[in-house]
Nucleic acid binder design. Structure first.
Lengths: 144, 144
DNA sequence: GCTCTTTCTTGAACGAGTCAAGAAAGAGCG
DNA sequence: CGCTCTTTCTTGACTCGTTCAAGAAAGAGC
């Protein structure tokens, strides 16, 4: 399994210890983009049936702090995680079913990063969430 | 108190019953922008000492659904409410203390509303959150 | 291997928010 | 003004994602 080696490199590169829960969490997040914590726990237990939920929570926090995964949490949703980091992409969220899809940044690199009046804040990221209705929910709502 | 009459008009205009909790919640949200639910409850109890928390939760939901207040919830925060609606403004959030400030939309009307690839989603809103450090926290972090 | 630190397990706890049943209060109408 | 019907509020229990805490286990350098 070459991926496990890649994950090991990622962890070491970030100065983190290589533990089986962390490797499994990295794999789970990569295989299930936008998964919530419960789904990640389920996926991780495919490899390690006895991991505690707390180990997954800890790993997700550590990996997020290290920048190896990204945490997203649209209004009204639980925390979700993805492995695409540092590429400045955004998300479309379905108001109806909560489905999330990636959206590449339309406006060059960091879009709208320059706020009109930043009130003295030092801004380092502009996060964009597009709200709408996914194809499935749109179809279900207009039957004819 | 002329404001109470204004709120009454707002409620009637939205087809909602005029109740004392709702009027008080409208006033509290207007006086305390970006307040969380607990703060709103506290402010409302300045007028109506015996309102239940549930009445405030219900009122906030109803007012949000009617478009009279707007709910915002940056990642990692509890729900917050504001009375500026329909003017397409955004928010700066301090990563350190959670402070929120309004930012008027820099890019004309609906900024970045056109996603590069919307995956078939019908998008109706683009929400922008600027993440950074507020003046207070920036000063506290660089003492010299 | 040994030792030290970090991480994981176990299980309890927290807190924002929701659910549910009955009481109270709007609002239209005679 | 009072009646009736519907909506809303009160009360209190409860859910669920997440965190806390103490001790056991497992990385990593030497």
């Amino acid at each position: 399994m070459p991926l496990a080696d890649d994950f090991e490199q990622l962890l070491r590169g970030a100065g983190l210890r290589v533990t089986r829960p962390r490797v499994a969490v990295l794999g789970a997040v990569r295989q299930h983009p936008h998964a919530d914590t419960e789904s990640v726990i389920g996926a991780v237990r495919g490899d390690l049936p006895d991991v505690s939920h707390q180990a997954v929570y800890d790993s997700l926090h550590t990996l997020t702090a290290a920048g190896l995964v990204r945490r997203i949490q649209p209004s009204g949703s639980v925390a979700r995680y993805e492995s695409r980091v540092d590429d400045n992409h955004h998300h479309v969220v379905c108001r109806s079913c909560g489905a999330i899809a990636d959206v590449d940044c339309a406006v060059g690199h960091t879009p709208c990063l320059t706020a009109s009046d930043d009130h003295g804040f030092v801004v380092d990221e502009a996060e964009v969430v597009y709200w709408g209705t996914c194809p499935g929910c749109a179809a279900a709502r207009t039957p004819q």
